[in-house]
Design a protein around this nucleic acid. Sequence first.
RNA 1: GCCCUCGUAGCUCAGGUGGAUAGAGCAACCGCCUCCUAAGCGGUAGGCCACAGGUUCGAAUCCUGUCGAGGGCGCCA
Length: 590
Amino acid sequence: MAVQTVSQILTSLVLAAADAAADTAGRAGVLPVVESVASTGNPRFGDYQSNHAFRLGKALRSNPRAVAEQMVARMPAHPAVARIEVAGPGFINFYLDDAWLCRQLVAQHQDRAGGVPQVEPGRTVVIDFSSPNIAKRMHIGHMRSTIIGSALQRLYEACGYTVVADNHIGDWGTQFGMLIVAWRRWLDPQAFERDPVGELERLYVAFRDAAATDPALDDLARQETARLQAGDPENRALWQRFIDISLREFQGVYDRLGVAFHVTLGESFYHSALPGVVEALLAAGLAEKSDGAVVVRFPDDHPVKAVRGRTLVIEKSDGAYLYGTTDLATLEHRLATWSPVEIQYITDGRQQLHFQQVFAVWRSWRTWRKLDPNAVKLVHTWFGTLKLPEGAMSTRKGNVIRLVDLLDEAVRRARAVVDAKSPDLSAQQRAEIAEAVGVGAVCYADLAQNPQSDVVFDWDRMLAMEGNTAPFLMYSYARCRSLQRKGGPKAAAVPLSAAACPHQLERALVRTLVRLPEVVAAALASHRPNLLCDYLFECAQATNRFYFELSVLQADTAEQRQSRLALIELTAGVLERGLAILGVPSLPRM
RNA sequence: GCCCUCGUAGCUCAGGUGGAUAGAGCAACCGCCUCCUAAGCGGUAGGCCACAGGUUCGAAUCCUGUCGAGGGCGCCA
């Protein structure tokens, strides 16, 4: 039996009360949907509040305050509710019963999903994220898609979805012809030995520089690309080698970030399907030839405003295909293979128009085939652009910050702090802690703001270790585990009766901790991991206030000591679960 | 020209599908480590939520307009 969230329980009470109130007014069922009962921002207004009386009052054309009174009078009794009051013009404030609140928190703690409401099993979501290009090192521009995508993946999993994490790598472009030419002319074997991907990157830049003065090189590159795509064994082998090298390098970064993909199906995987896509769209009358290219035109009255009057090229005049063509083939493949209810694309906001076009074409195509265009929910979850203080990054300008360098610097700074604070730990332990704290800080810094905000990269902000940061959350967690270690063998036990919380700081902590499931659900619904970050920060603050003010191990009575230790266990549980969703490790000490 | 974002404390940003007095962090200032990890805790100061209208019992939030910033608009991804 799944645990209901506090919000769900109270919402159903409000629904019953509203029905009863409407019934007495002879208007049963007038407002079937109830706005969910939310936790209050201010304890002065109770623990949770409902604003439903305002809506019902409007529907019944009566005074909201009076409606609220009637609703409260007809509210079914429930052990969760200690007291209900009507405040102001018609707010209904719920005060929760302390003992019940503790039992609810324990139930959530013991639930496998942490009390997070689960969707029915078997619902699959495909998440397309990270998607770096082969033969280039990942730089901080790749960070957002990777970190946000990975957090969304775990958010979906936390809510019971089956997730297919798909790394749609760029492994099939004209850059391979250039690389093959450059490889044969300028490869530095020693440099390649030391840093394979770095050497590939150097070769690419060298080619571009040389081609700027010698246009014949571009023709050569085109020939090599054509030979590769025609299946030339030598080029094919080289191409495969570039991919293997790059994937190995990417994997190193993914391992550090705690990112794992189920499949890595890049552009090359769909190559053979592209002619069929173009033919099908031509046959359907959705695409047309134009100046030697094949394009899809969107009418001026298209239902999607953003694409009105625009054009999507699906085949170039030289016969090559484009990103949009691949996206259509990819969509077909994903639907056929996994039957997802939803596909998430995690990319930069500059691709908004592109995805609106792809989605629109695909839906028209589905309709033409007499298939449901809404069989799968297509969502482009975009994020703001990451820029350097001096402007955009560019591999050719050479002003990129490599992702590994960012991580290494973060770990270096974390190491300095660990060395200063925990000199008693072994060098090995301190190194492990520094790795977790440094990488955690970077991930959290990206996740803690609204994804859609643009970001100007700032070392100090990215690597901060105080305030609303991963290190503070990790520290709070480590403090809990430390107390348990010192509390003896029974410190992690959570007896129901012992979890009473008489002190207001304990009460406040419990009230905060119990919200985890609601926050996870909200973060998923709005695709904003930062909601979870904010919440965990609140938890950490409440935790620190609690154990700063009240002694756990030297409590006045044995019962109180056990009760506080139980609360520590519940706190650690929430922090650990939340951090895990964000991809930030929980360490027993730091 | 059309389309998409954004404008909140000195700085960086939450909050935005309407709710009660707009919140953090950093920076500043004042306190707190003979006591479970000070990556912490308490306190002070700091705001016409760009501007002007509109809708509503109620607007930072929704609508319209103005100003300012960024991005995108058939053969890149």
